[in-house]
Design a binder for these strands. Sequence first.
DNA 1: TCAAAAGTGTTAGATTTACACCCATGA
DNA 2: TCATGGGTGTAAATCTAACACTTTTGA
Lengths: 224, 224
Amino acid sequence: MTYYSQHAKVWVSVDCIIFGFDDGKLKVLIGRRQMDPGRGEWSLYGGFVAADEGLDEAASRTVKELTGLDNLYMRQVGAFGKTDRDPGERVISIAYYALINVKDYNERLRLEHGVEWMDVNHLPMLYSDHNEMVCKARKLMRQKLRTEPVGFRLLPNLFTLTQLQRLYEAVNGEDLDKRNFRKRIKEMDFIEKTELIDKSGSKRGASLYRFNKKAYNEDPNFKL
Amino acid sequence: MTYYSQHAKVWVSVDCIIFGFDDGKLKVLIGRRQMDPGRGEWSLYGGFVAADEGLDEAASRTVKELTGLDNLYMRQVGAFGKTDRDPGERVISIAYYALINVKDYNERLRLEHGVEWMDVNHLPMLYSDHNEMVCKARKLMRQKLRTEPVGFRLLPNLFTLTQLQRLYEAVNGEDLDKRNFRKRIKEMDFIEKTELIDKSGSKRGASLYRFNKKAYNEDPNFKL
DNA sequence: TCAAAAGTGTTAGATTTACACCCATGA
DNA sequence: TCATGGGTGTAAATCTAACACTTTTGA
């Protein structure tokens, strides 16, 4: 006790970079900060870590509070701890990113919290070091999407190959060749074609696919 | 103020995974914990983050305290914050890894602190979640070494190609083909051959090379 | 003289990239 | 009937991986 107590305690918060994919663009949920300091500035959504709560827990709770969604794909981005990062007090913040399907986010709930989806390529200045957090989150997320099949978390359960391709284009910031892309998809047996057709995106209609997690676990050979 | 003060404060520490390369093996500095709880257990070296100190700063200070070394290559591994990770009190710890040349570490100083180099593949059980920290640090470090020329930080300024190859073999955990390895090195103009010969490793002697940082910045094409 | 590490090119196979046309349908 | 997005294969180029012998020298 004495050993600990000679040192200072600080506040620790979590900040969440919630990624969504809509209109062919990678987006992030941001809102106007409701409290001082920094009231009115664009900001990520965050919250304090409670005394009896782990960091991952705090992040999940915070995202659920905002979106009502559970069991999301979330990963830690890192700890941000410059002494002057918060203009009010010393607060160390642990950033997390989450992947959600924008359609799963209830519109009313979104408006209640006053947050909106903003194109990650055209973000305004954010409160404190939040732009840095988004930047690092993007890098990690991109790397993850290349090597693990988590991109599906940004799409509906059923999706077309064009949707999937657009997603990867948005994340990597470069166009992909349609034939090469589809060739690679065909090699991954856990991306299953269904009998269903989506007619919303074209007159002809496109086959809907789904990600089969079980099949992936049996033969996890993913690379994009 | 009131906004902050309704939340709990916690202790925040840093823990350092200090990597070295010796005897063909990747090693980590660990020592017996000198304080309760966990006195006597194998542990990483760490310290508390002071109120007026950033996280990176705290990590650098801690490593300097242990090794006397400055300006090391250091990167954050992440925040570890399970509520019960520290048996005494709630402490959130931010892990950092550092790369040092073992020859730069003064032996007397090492003994004074009672730490030793241990093969990263044969670590004992460590205090709290320190094994996890090492594991994550290794992953990040390996990824970094593949894509950026930072491996040199684990070697003397002048090194032979065999030394460099052994380093990469130790980090990646697999043997490399000598000819292919040297072919790749030759393509990178910032790895410069000097006129000097090292006779310590063989009768014939091997050319010594050096990393030219300036040349790298002008044409940063690294891949191993 | 021989053991031990240094140094050096070529080739087959695998992977990656570039590229253009027909199809089905609703408006 | 035509505009729109869906769907399909091949060939060249590049990259990767496998492989063995000669050199130097101190012991």
